[in-house]
């Protein structure tokens, strides 16, 4: 699978050559655009990394988790993966680290490990993506974007548990 990315790059360059495009000139023009885009998203990323680091090191995640855990238990949501599910919308690297923790504690093929995998595979870092995409065009009023995005995240979490139970034949 590691070949997909380089292969796509090569195919695009090849297609450009066949169509008679001055590929290297085009490439350099594009790189200039890329550098400009980074300048637009840099403040957003700095702000988010700052907030997420604070959240992780201060123990605030534990506080929120202990508040959410009783609810999760009542709904049949494995309590081992509550921290990972909570951090998922905010931080990709943070939730990956917690995903690995679940694998180490419970095993990758355990119920908790499978549910955590499905959540990781079917959701994205919502706040990060939203802030970055709107930050790059300086749009401030994002209307109901977060409402819809968080509804999707919540659906992914709920459906993950149900899908894993049905697919692997656990008791509902």
């Amino acid at each position: 699978m590691a070949i997909v990315m380089p292969l796509i790059a090569a195919l695009i360059v090849l297609f450009g050559l066949i169509r008679g495009v001055p590929v290297f000139d085009s490439f350099m023009l594009g790189v200039r655009d890329g550098a400009r885009t980074l300048k637009m998203i840099a403040p957003t990323i700095l702000g988010l990394v700052f907030a997420v680091t604070l959240l992780k090191t201060s123990g605030a995640v534990d506080v929120i988790c202990s508040a959410v855990k009783p609810v999760a238990d009542a709904l049949g949501f494995p309590s081992e993966i509550v921290p990972m599910a909570l951090l998922r919308p905010v931080s990709g690297s943070g939730s990956s680290a917690l995903l690995i923790q679940v694998y180490k504690d419970c095993g990758a093929d355990s119920f908790a490990g499978r549910v955590a995998s499905v959540i990781a595979g079917s959701s994205e870092t919502t706040f990060y993506a939203t802030a970055m995409y709107f930050g790059c065009v300086r749009v401030k009023r994002i209307r109901h974007t977060l409402v819809a995005a968080l509804a999707a995240d919540f659906t992914a979490m709920a459906v993950s548990v149900i899908a894993v139970r049905l697919y692997f034949g656990y008791n509902l």
Partner: peptide, 27 residues
Amino acid sequence: AVELLLTLLGILCLWSGIMRIAGDSGL
């Protein structure tokens, strides 16, 4: 954050370049 930005700068520039080729060639 700065480290992340540097990684992103590379990815962003590289793929913006490739994307420009895709755009110019009609892909």
